[in-house]
Amino acid sequence: MPETLPGQPVKGAFLHRFANPGRFLRLAHWLFPLLSASSGIFLTIGMIWALWFSPADWQQGDAVRIMYLHVPMAMLASGGYAALALCGVLSLVWKHPLADLAAVEIGPVGAVITGLCLVTGSLWGKPMWGAWWVWDARLTSVLVLFFLYLGHIALIQAFDDPQRGYRAAAVLAIAGVIDLPIIKFSVNWWNTLHQPDSITLTHAPTMPESMLLPLSICLTGFSLGFAALVTGRLQAAILETRAEQMLTRRARSQNGLS
C-alpha cells in the first residue's frame, strides 16, 4: 500500500476514525446513556399505546397487538444481520480492529432478536392461522437466518486463534447476506401463508395511522435499544480486553523484576 503523504486526505479516514478503541470509549461514554434513555422512553410510550390505545383489528381483534412486537423484531433481525455482514466486510477488507469485536457483540443480540421474531410470530400464528408453525418460504427463510446467527456465534469461538475465528465468522456473515433478500421478497416470489409486507418503500402502507404511529414508535424504541445494547456490549468488550492487557503487562513486568 502506498504511503500517504502528509497533508493529503487519507482514504477511508472516516472508517478509521473509530478504529481507536479509546476514541470509541469516549464516544460510548455519552452515546450509551443517551441511547438507553431514549430507547426506554420510546418503548414505554410505544408499549402503552400498543396495548391500550391502539384499535383492535376488524378481523384479528386484539391479537393484532402482537404485531407491535413482531414487526420490529423481524426488521431488526434482518437489519442486525446486515450490520454483521458490514462488520465482516470491514474486517476482511479494511482489517478494522473494532469490526471483529463488534461482530462478536452483535451476534448474540441478533440471535435473541431473531428468536423473539420466531416466538412472537408463532404466538400470533396459532390464534390467527390456526398453526404454530408452517413450512412456508417466509418462515423457513427466517429460521435459516436464526441458524446463521447461531453459526456465527459458534464459529467465532471454534478456533484457538481468535483471528482465525473472526475471519471464518466474517466469511459466514457475508455469505449469509443472500438470505436477506430471500426473506424480504419470499412473500412476493412464492405464495406463502404469511401475508405480504404492510409497510414497503414503494407503496402506501396498508395500515391506518392509528396503528402505524404506535408501530413506528415501537420500532424506533427497539432500534434504539438494539443500538444501545451493541454500544454497551462493545464498550464492555473493550474494557475487558484492556483489563486483560493490564494484567499481562503486570505479569510480564513482575517476571522481569524477579
Binding site: 408499549m47 402482537i66 435473541v112 445494547l229
Partner: peptide
C-alpha cells in the same frame, strides 16, 4: 381482550429477553 394469553406471552417474552440482555450488560 380476545386471545389474551397469546398477547401476554409475547409481551413477556420480548420484554423479558430485553430485560435479561440489559441486566447482563
Amino acid at each position: 381482550m380476545s386471545h389474551l394469553p397469546y398477547i401476554v406471552a409475547s409481551y413477556i417474552a420480548v420484554l423479558g429477553a430485553a430485560g435479561i440482555l440489559a441486566f447482563q450488560l
